[in-house]
Amino acid sequence: MTPLYSPEEAATLSRRARLYRTVALILAVAGLCVCVLLCFGVRPNNTPRRLFEIIAVSTAAGWAAILFLNVGYRPLMGTARHIQHISGAEAAEYAGTIRKTGKLFQIPGSIVVQKIRLQQGDEALTLNVDARKAHLLPDDGTKLRVQCRGTFITAFEVYHE
């Protein structure tokens, strides 16, 4: 079976997320320290320029920290937590014909999910797959055996009758 998740992936994502968070913290603290140091260099003849410099440094450091946290740390951590969460869900196996619905939705604080339809005779199962991994699934109409944890496809295998 082709796996879509692995415990190693969760660990790697967590490590990268913590690195982003550390960098954000360092940037924020460094920015604050630079601003405090600039305050000590204030003189009557450089007051307006020094204030501008302090605001510029504070803004730049804050923006960098915000971007590292919200664009780096949070998405990675959300994905890592998702993988850890579904690892504890009930396992099941299904077989049927795949049809990708193209419908995406964002789980708040977590991953973007794509809905997958698995046709089993007259019945259709609606399953979910991490939208980043959806391209790994074969084309519509392919017969698949899938492993699931909860409603999430964690591995698949093409079969021919």
């Binding site: 302090i54 915000i66 998405p75």
Partner: peptide, 30 residues
């Protein structure tokens, strides 16, 4: 979601930080 879109969604927060930074440091400086 692509990183570009994630970055664009941060723009309101970045603007708020710019204003807060100016107000806070302006007060401290004074």
């Amino acid at each position: 979601m692509s990183n570009i879109r994630r970055i664009l969604r941060q723009i309101p927060l970045l603007i708020i930080w710019l204003m807060a930074s100016g107000l806070i440091w302006g007060f401290v400086f004074t």
